[in-house]
């Protein structure tokens, strides 16, 4: 008898999407059929599909946090990251595939935020799959013409003296924000600093955590 996941949260604290024990939907039926046809026609294999799922599951904001923390502590790496973020990420050992990445750096008077108004392009090969809100109509529609209101809904209020730079990810590049290094972290190592770098701070809808809130 099917049981229900409703009372359970996943390890990340989010509800499970109905899956195995819920009624089959038309689109799930199509997914199963396509997958089987692709395997039969030797386009792919079950092993290859599982490996791809594992590869995506292994990507997370922690990867980006490590990149940012190194940029905070290693000026040569920071320059390399700003010059070619794909190469710099690969040099740190991250498998980002063919993704072309640009890093944009916050400054005391500049705040960067990333959006994709045409679809939902995201640096998935470094940070993993995007949050649901990033794909929403509200975020895609509003970030380019009222970014400060959007940021305020994330709890981030910027001074009027800060210039906001919105980056619409319209074509072949993907973007990561290098947030400002928090005050009071002098002498910290990269691993500790990386703990302060949130996913949202690398999209630009947040800033890095302060050491007191760690």
């Amino acid at each position: 008898m099917p049981h229900d996941h409703h009372d359970h949260l996943s390890p990340s604290g989010h509800p499970y999407r109905p899956d195995d024990d819920h009624p089959l939907t038309y689109w799930q039926q199509m997914e199963i059929a396509i997958r089987e046809l692709l395997i039969e026609k030797t386009v792919t294999t079950a092993t290859e599909i599982n490996a791809q799922i594992d590869a995506m599951d292994s990507r997370s904001p922690a990867n980006g946090a490590a990149v940012v923390a190194r940029a905070w502590t290693d000026p040569v790496f920071r320059d390399a990251l700003l010059a070619d973020a794909s190469a710099a990420s690969r040099d740190m050992g991250f498998d980002i595939g063919p993704m072309k990445l640009i890093a944009v750096e916050n400054a005391p008077d500049v705040h960067n935020v990333i959006v994709c108004t045409l679809c939902s392009c995201y640096p998935r090969n470094l940070l993993g799959l995007p949050p649901d809100w990033y794909k929403s109509r509200a975020y895609r529609a509003r970030t380019v013409n009222e970014p400060r209101k959007v940021l305020s809904e994330f709890g981030l209020t910027l001074p009027d003296t800060t210039t906001v730079r919105v980056h619409d990810s319209t074509a072949d590049m993907r973007y990561i924000v290098i947030p400002a290094r928090p005050e009071g972290t002098g002498g910290w190592g990269q691993d500790d600093l990386a703990q302060l770098v949130t996913r949202d701070s690398m999209i630009g809808t947040g800033v890095a955590k302060s050491p007191t809130s760690k």
Binding site: S10, S12, H14, P15, Y16, R17, P18, D19, L129, P131, D132, W133, S136, A138, Y139, R142, V150, E153, F154
Partner: peptide, 9 residues
Amino acid sequence: IPTDQHDFA
């Protein structure tokens, strides 16, 4: 901006 989040099935 919606705040709902789900894990992928």
